[in-house]
Every structure is written in structure tokens, then in C-alpha cells.
Nucleic acid binder design. Structure first.
Lengths: 128, 128
DNA sequence: TAAATTGTATTATTTCTGTAATACAATAAT
DNA sequence: ATTATTGTATTACAGAAATAATACAATTTA
């Protein structure tokens, strides 16, 4: 697990890279719902990071609903297809409505927006 | 002009808010090519900002090609034909990038987003 | 030309973010 | 029950970004 390395010279913060890594593990199926994540200190040692940096990644993932932390016990992947997905869909849709409103008020058309998503689905979005 | 207020508690930096404000003035047509912008100190006074903050906004807008600065004289709206459209496109794209980032971090896929757009473009009238 | 008005440059200060050091608290293992 | 393991909280540090204070330079205006 976590064969990809952390890029210490990247402008993308370490904890963000780690979050992305873990999400990819989940999306790819290498991490399933209920799986335990490595303990903070252990993963920190493996990736040569400060434990707090790993903790921050785990904590953020928990806020986003992908992980459940239990003090003294560990961190667990928490990805309930049904309930969580519908919750996220709602949140995504709210985000989209906000975007749509702003875009339309800027004078964009739905076609403009379609073209955007088309363009972005061709080449993987980059991180900043 | 500039009836919208600056939000000092926003995480978006003041000069960025100001840039956005001015771009909106241009897109809406309240500011046309050749119009003079308020002098740095004057706008700073109106919005209760430090003059350097206004200067930074003007300077950035000049770098982006929407404003021309003349020392001792003032700042002027400056866009050629077609430039307005590209400004609009750029702003819509910025909004889109922000939305995309949030949506993906929520666990949405590009297909989810495509479906969203499709759904909204099918019954357009409901969403003004 | 003199004074006022305007943008520019330099430097300092503050704020924010990411990272780190360390101590604390809950759970599990024995 | 005691110890080891685990996550959490607090605080501090460093670098970057945003904002501010001040002095400078060009243009306009009288």
C-alpha cells in the first residue's frame, strides 16, 4: 500500500498529497470500507513524515466522511456506498447550483459549461 | 460605482475581491473601454483600504491586460475587441475549477458532473 | 514654473498555512 | 491492573502571502 511517493518539492502540501493518495487507494478498490489505515506513527515512519502531518490528512479525510477515527484504536475507511453517496450527491449538487448561478450571471451559456467539462474530462485536472 | 462591499473576514484576499469587483463592473458594462478608474488613493478611501492594496489590484489587472496605468495620470479600462469574451470565459473557468475541486474532493466523478449538467440543461427554465 | 495629483518602489509588519515538537487521553493487549 | 499502542490537543516555528507605512517620480493643473 502507498507505493507512490511523496513529492517534497511539490507546491502541493504534503498532507494534501497524502489525502489524494488515500482517496486513490479507496477509489481504486485497494482500500475498502472497513479497512484499517496504518497507524499515524507507522505511516509517518514509512513515508518519512511528521506524525502530525499524517494526522492532519486523516483528520481532514474524517471531516470529509471518508475515514473514521477511534482514539486509542486506529483509523478506518468509511465509505458506505448508499448513505454517504446520496449525502455527497446532495452536496455536490448544491455546489453545482452555486457555480451555475455565478457562471450564468457572468454571461456564460450552458453550452459554454458543457464545453468546459468536456475539456476537463479529456485531460486529468492538475493540482495547484 | 463599487456599491458592493469588501468582506474583511473573507478568506479571499482583499485585493482579489477588488479585482473581482472591477471585472464585474467591466463585464456588466458599467465600465467601458477607455473609462478612467478612480485614483488609487480615492478608491482606497471609499472602500477604507490601504492604497497599496488598491494599487496591487490595479497592477494585477494591468498584468492581465484589462487596465492601463499612466504614472501621474491615472488608470484606464483597456480591452480590445474579443478581450471581453475572453475575460468572461476566464472567470467562468475559474469558477468551474473551484467547483470541480470541491466536487472531486467530495468524491464525485466526472461522470457525476456530466450527468448534473445534462440534468440541468434538460429543464433549463427552472433554474433561471 | 510651482503645487497638487497621480502612480511606483522600497521596506516593514501582520496574517495565514504548513509543518514540527511535545505532552495528553483513550483504548487495546498482556 | 499495568503497559504499550493509538489518536488528540497545545504550542511553537518557518516561510509565504497580504497588508501597511513611507518615500519617490511622473504628469497635470493653476
Amino acid at each position: 500500500m502507498f507505493r507512490t511517493n511523496i513529492d517534497f518539492s511539490s507546491p502541493l502540501p504534503i498532507y494534501r498529497q497524502l489525502i489524494h493518495l488515500i482517496k486513490m487507494e479507496i477509489i481504486s478498490g485497494r482500500l475498502s470500507d472497513g479497512d484499517q489505515l496504518p497507524p499515524i506513527r507507522e505511516l509517518a515512519k514509512i513515508l518519512k513524515l511528521n506524525p502530525n502531518t499524517v494526522a492532519k490528512a486523516y483528520y481532514t479525510l474524517e471531516e470529509e466522511g471518508f475515514v473514521e477515527s477511534k482514539r486509542g484504536s486506529g483509523n478506518w475507511v468509511n465509505y458506505k456506498k448508499g448513505k454517504l453517496d446520496s449525502l455527497r450527491k446532495g452536496m455536490v449538487e448544491d455546489e453545482f447550483k452555486g457555480f451555475l448561478e455565478r457562471a450564468l450571471s457572468l454571461g456564460a451559456t450552458l453550452d459554454d459549461i458543457k464545453n468546459l467539462i468536456k475539456r476537463y474530462s479529456d485531460n486529468e485536472p492538475k493540482h495547484r
